[in-house]
Design a protein around this nucleic acid. Structure first.
Length: 414
DNA sequence: TCTGGGGTCCTAGGACCC
DNA sequence: TCTGGGGTCCTAGGACCC
């Protein structure tokens, strides 16, 4: 049996821990530039407020209903998330951290316990130790724990689906669009074919599912039948890509400002990369004009750090070079960012570099080291594992006119 | 010049998740 | 005036090789 422990209205609950007077009151949390709603309490939901609504459109209504409004504070939510995980680890060691507010747990070591009672124990302990209310769904597969959890959120707090009868009963009335893995497009397609409930989907033939919904859909359907196909991942896999992007909050029209913004993203992404012990081979730089204002312009450039440059530059230099290449005067840019691709472990990469046999490669590596060293000082090459710490120092000390740790303090350009 | 199967690698794009 | 910021997996199609 598996359990899914999911925090209720997570961001709103975090804010409420410090302001208990908001319990029972509507609360919403806003995205980065206070752009839109990204979390809401049940009371806010009852007022018809939902995720995705632009703040400027509902500002007056929020005031009218006395809704508590918060700007997002990810540091706080991350901290609470860790506390919830730490609490659950006290109860069971086999867990997968699925998202900032969800944890899967393997209950196979607890077969002697009544699952319902154990679910309540988890729920009560988390609430007591962290102040965060959670719901618990218990079932044989991940997809079914998702179903159980959704039902638990409607009131009981804990729902156990451990017999074919209970599962059947749960799936009969379960709307297709609420299934984990069925999004907007699939729900539309299935409904058009007369499939409206989880039970109907579960009972479709394998070949049909495979054809209409690919292998992912087939896995999902098997999960609904109680056959686990999506394993618990207790050791997180290393990241395949790292993205750092933001909406600007105002329009960027000058290349200089774009370079400053991109420099900021590049250093943040590189910082995260180093924290995870990774190095990168490609950087994608992208920015776009407003998509809510007619057609939008979304240039992007992928730079391979070996192929496209004569030397291996640091992430910031490569980002700046790409930015200059795709920036177009005359556009009003609204959003931008960078993505690190082709990530691999710094350790492995170090062996790679040491084992370069090809003379041309070795020569270009030497040239790279030389070029970057002249520019930024010894060992600042980010790509060699040995240079990673140096690069970090370089970022701090760099006197580049494009470098700022807080580009958002830049004067508005229009 | 035409014919052909099969394999791998890469990329773009779609769909989904929180 | 003002509309989030992360991620993953899968497929199709093209290039290239034997």
């Amino acid at each position: 049996m598996l359990a899914l422990i999911d925090c209720n209205s997570f961001y709103a609950s975090c804010e409420r821990v410090f302001q208990p007077k908001l319990n029972g009151k509507p609360v919403v949390v806003l995205s980065n530039n206070d752009g839109m709603v990204i979390a809401k309490s049940n009371e806010a939901k009852a007022l018809g407020l939902d995720i995705g609504l632009p703040y400027f459109q509902i500002k007056d209504e929020l005031k009218k209903h006395n809704v508590a409004v918060f700007s997002s504070n990810y540091t706080l939510y991350g901290d609470f998330s860790q506390r919830v995980v730490a609490t659950l680890r006290e109860l069971t060691s086999d867990i997968e951290i699925y998202s900032i507010d969800e944890v899967f747990a393997d209950l196979k070591g607890f077969a002697h316990k009544d699952p319902l009672a154990y679910g309540h124990e988890m729920r009560d302990t988390v609430k007591k130790w962290t102040g965060i209310p959670v719901s618990v769904g218990i079932a044989p597969s991940k997809a079914l724990t998702k179903v159980a959890n959704k039902l638990a959120k409607k009131g009981p707090g804990v729902v156990v689906l451990d017999t074919p009868e209970k599962i059947e009963q749960a799936l009969i009335g379960f709307p297709i669009e609420d299934i984990w893995g069925i999004g907007h497009q699939r729900a539309k397609m299935l409904k058009a074919l007369g499939i409206n409930t989880a039970k109907q989907l579960r009972d479709m033939p394998d070949l049909w599912i495979r054809k209409k919904m690919t292998i992912t859909g087939l896995r999902l359907v098997h999960e609904l039948r109680g056959i686990p196909c999506i394993p618990l991942e207790m050791q997180p896999e290393p990241k395949q890509q790292i993205i750092c992007s933001r909406s600007f909050g105002y329009f960027i029209t000058e290349q200089k400002d774009m370079e400053q913004a991109m420099t900021y993203y590049a250093s943040r992404a590189a910082e995260r990369m180093r924290d995870q012990g990774l190095v990168t081979s490609d950087i994608m730089v992208f920015f776009e004009t407003s998509r809510f204002n007619g057609p939008f312009y979304a240039p992007s450039k992928v730079m391979n750090l070996h192929r496209e440059t004569n030397y291996t530059p640091d992430i910031v230099s490569a980002t700046l070079a790409a930015t200059r290449q795709i920036f177009r005067k005359g556009y009003r840019y609204r959003k931008g960012g960078i993505m690190l691709l082709g990530l691999s472990s710094a350790k492995e990469r170090q062996y790679d570099l040491l084992s370069l046999r090809n003379e041309v490669q070795q020569e270009s590596l030497m040239k790279a080291l030389d070029g970057v060293n002249k520019k930024y000082g010894a060992n600042s090459l980010f790509f060699a594992a040995a240079g990673i710490r140096k690069e970090w120092q370089m970022m701090r000390q760099m006197k580049s006119p494009h470098y700022t740790t807080n580009w958002q303090e830049l004067p508005r350009c229009n």
